[in-house]
Simulated assay, not measured.
Amino acid sequence: MEFFRREELATNLAKKVLEVSPTSASSSGLFLAAPRRTGKSTFLREDLRPALEKEGALVLYVDLWEDRSADPGETIVHMVRAELAKHEGVITRLARSAGMEKVAVGGLSFSQDRIGLGDGISLSTALAELSDEVKRPIALVIDEAQQAIVSEKGNDALFALKAARDELNSSRHFGLRVVATGSNRDKLAMLRAGRDQAFMGAPLINFPTLGMDYVQWFCHRLNLGAPLDPARVYELFKRASFRPELLGAAADAVRFEFGLPPDQVSTRFAEAIDEQIAESEREQLRVVHNLTPPQSTVLRVMAVRGEKFAPFEAATIESYNAVLQATSPNVDAKIDVSGAQQALAALQEKALIWRAARGVYALEETGLATLMASAGMLDDVPR
């Protein structure tokens, strides 16, 4: 499959990540935020990973959204174990450090289950051995890293990686860099904003969206019976919030519209973009409209409060009941702390909201609040 390459950006970013300088904070970790479905994960796999390898790093990549049912802490541990399994010398030394003099590599003498979080051999020790084996820096790329803090094991894994980073960035080893990405800047900031967070103070930057060069590449490869003007398509791309999949879906809609005259291709493509945007918004709102009154009420208040959302404070409970009375006057019910907890659990199960292990809540999709506001669903929420 052919991908749009962002080699210059990847090379520039790789050099900055691996830079060894007393004036650089990249050794603390680098956090990149970009909205979902804007090409971030493709860039990590197809551009940044090869660029880091070209600069001499051993790259370990993990996507915490690949298996949403798995605990993110275990996912990180399994990724490290998978890389260690490729290096017999590392396994041998780890086995001996566990008190085993005779080691049958590849057999049952040493189980990698001993490596991990509180399992005998720490991630820090394992990564230090790996660093000494490969004699080059290790770059750990974690996609959708905000998922790490939805579980205690995920939090533990982040602190284990911090310990590994501190050890591997000492003069005795070859360095460890952590590149964490996420689709929600506010969630990602939780991993490095507080003193109780493993990567406090690490830089957090907005990942650049795809630009005109991507649109030109896209238009050049289309075969719709007539060329598209990249300048016009770029304006449509901005309207689609820089999501490549919407351009592709619109192109497919035009491609399979048999008998379309060439002079109507450009107009029809613009219409198809609007249709894709409307369909995406309609699907999101359909889920919201199917919520129970208490669930809908809690979601509305959360959408308005944003970072200041405190789900169980007295003032918030009052807001819930004011909204419930305004939007569902025929519902003979009130929301208390228990009812709010039940609503939040249901919203989380429906993947509308996200909850950190320490009890902080946020909308799963950052654009949902804007969409609800445009539909008039937030008008009754007290400001």
Rank of each mutant, 00 (worst) to 15 (best):
F4G: 01
R6W: 12
A10M: 02
A14V: 02
K16I: 07
V17P: 00
L18E: 00
E19P: 03
E19Y: 07
S21N: 13
L30Q: 10
L32D: 08
A34M: 11
A34C: 15
P35K: 11
P35W: 13
D47R: 02
D47I: 01
D47G: 01
R49P: 05
G56W: 00
D63V: 03
R68D: 13
P72G: 05
G73E: 10
E83G: 00
E83P: 01
G89Y: 13
T92H: 07
R96M: 08
R114T: 06
I115R: 00
L117W: 11
I121T: 04
S131K: 01
D132R: 14
D132V: 01
E133W: 14
K135G: 03
V141Q: 04
E144V: 01
Q147G: 03
N155G: 15
F159E: 06
K162M: 05
K162W: 11
A163Y: 11
A163L: 08
A164R: 03
D166L: 02
A180I: 04
G182Y: 08
S183R: 07
D186T: 11
L191I: 09
G194I: 05
G194H: 12
Q197F: 04
P203K: 05
Q216N: 15
W217G: 01
P227V: 06
P230C: 02
E235R: 08
K238C: 06
A240Y: 11
R243Q: 14
L247S: 02
A249P: 12
E257N: 06
L260A: 09
D263H: 14
Q264K: 12
F269V: 09
A270F: 09
A272K: 05
Q276I: 02
Q276H: 08
E283T: 13
R286H: 14
V288T: 06
H289R: 14
T292Q: 10
Q295V: 00
S296K: 12
T297M: 00
R300G: 01
M302S: 02
V304H: 11
F309A: 02
E318A: 08
E318H: 08
E318L: 04
Y320R: 07
A322F: 04
V323W: 02
T327V: 13
K334R: 11
V337I: 13
Q348L: 01
Q348E: 15
E349F: 03
A351P: 03
V360G: 12
G367L: 03
L371Y: 08
A375S: 09
D379C: 00
V381R: 00
V381T: 04
P382A: 04
P382S: 01
